[in-house]
Amino acid sequence: MKSGPILNTSTRGLVPLMIAFSVFLLWRGHNLPGGGFIGGLVASAALVLDGLTFGPGMIRRRLRADPVTVAAVGLLVGVIAGLLGWFAGSPFLTGLWWKPIVGGAELPLGTPLLFDIGVYLVVVGTISALWLALAERRQGGED
C-alpha cells in the first residue's frame, strides 16, 4: 500500500486524537450519548486509518495481541461486570456503584462502566479482526 506524505503526517496526528476521543465517548456514555459501542467504533476507525496508511502490520503492533483475543477479553470483562452484581447478592447484571471523592468532586465508577469497557474491547477486536482478514488476504494476493 502506498501513501503520500500528507496522509502519513495527518494520520500521525489524527490517530492519538481519535483514540483520546473514543475514550472520552466511552467515559460519558452511561447517561449521555456515547458509550462503549460508539467509542469502540471510533477507536477501530483510528486503527483502520493507521492500517490504511502504514499497512496491516501497524494494527497488530498497536493492539499487541491477537484481535480475537482482544474481543474475547472484552466479552469476559462484560460477563464479569454482570457477575459482580450477582456476587453482591443481587440478580445478574445489577449495576453496582462505587463513588470515591477525587479532588473534591464525586467520581462515579460502577459495573455499567466496566460493562462498557468490555463492549469497547469487543468492538475494537472484532472490527480489527474483520479488517485484518480482508487486508491481509489482499496483501497476500498481491505478493
Binding site: A72, L76, V79
Partner: peptide, 14 residues
C-alpha cells in the same frame, strides 16, 4: 451464563 463463559474461555484458547 455457563455456555457464555465456556465459549469465551474456548475463544481465548483459540
Amino acid at each position: 451464563v455457563i455456555p457464555m463463559v465456556a465459549g469465551i474461555l474456548a475463544l481465548l484458547a483459540v
